[in-house]
């Protein structure tokens, strides 16, 4: 379960940002997690519940935006559907991943003095 180590990295980043703004508290943490990122949103939430205790994020909500995998032909932009061979039937080009591998800290909402 690597979600715990990811969450530790996330918390370090959020705490540093909160310190820069001399925040009193963090209210919200927004992340984007792709379907093919290898990160399980439910496990990320469990890890957040453990890691935030006693930190500036203690009362914060974690909002996870799940991003679906999207494969397209790099030549004709034809989308491929899940389960299909990842090669464009028209152009013969190997598909390219257009979305779905994100593991991104998007925004945080802080309470500042």
């Amino acid at each position: 379960m690597h979600e715990y180590s990811l969450m530790t990295a996330l918390m370090e980043r959020v705490e540093a940002e909160a310190a820069t703004h001399r925040a009193l508290a963090v209210h919200r943490v927004r992340v984007r997690i792709g379907e093919l990122s290898g990160v399980e949103p439910d496990l990320l939430e469990s890890a957040f519940a453990i890691v935030r205790a006693g930190t500036i994020c203690a009362g914060a909500a974690l909002e996870i935006e799940r991003v679906a995998a999207r494969w397209v032909c790099p030549a004709c932009r034809r989308p491929m559907t899940a389960g299909e061979r990842l090669e464009c039937p028209t152009c013969g080009e190997p598909a390219a991943l257009a979305a779905g591998d994100e593991i991104v800290l998007g925004q945080i909402e802080l309470e500042v003095p």
């Binding site: 990811l6 990295a9 996330l10 980043r13 940002e17 703004h21 009193l24 209210h27 992340v31 593991i103 991104v104 800290l105 998007g106 925004q107 945080i108 909402e109 802080l110 309470e111 500042v112 003095p113």
Partner: peptide
Amino acid sequence: PHKVSVEIQERILS
């Protein structure tokens, strides 16, 4: 105190 939203847009594994 008031709330501010801060854009980060960084990979968590940076």
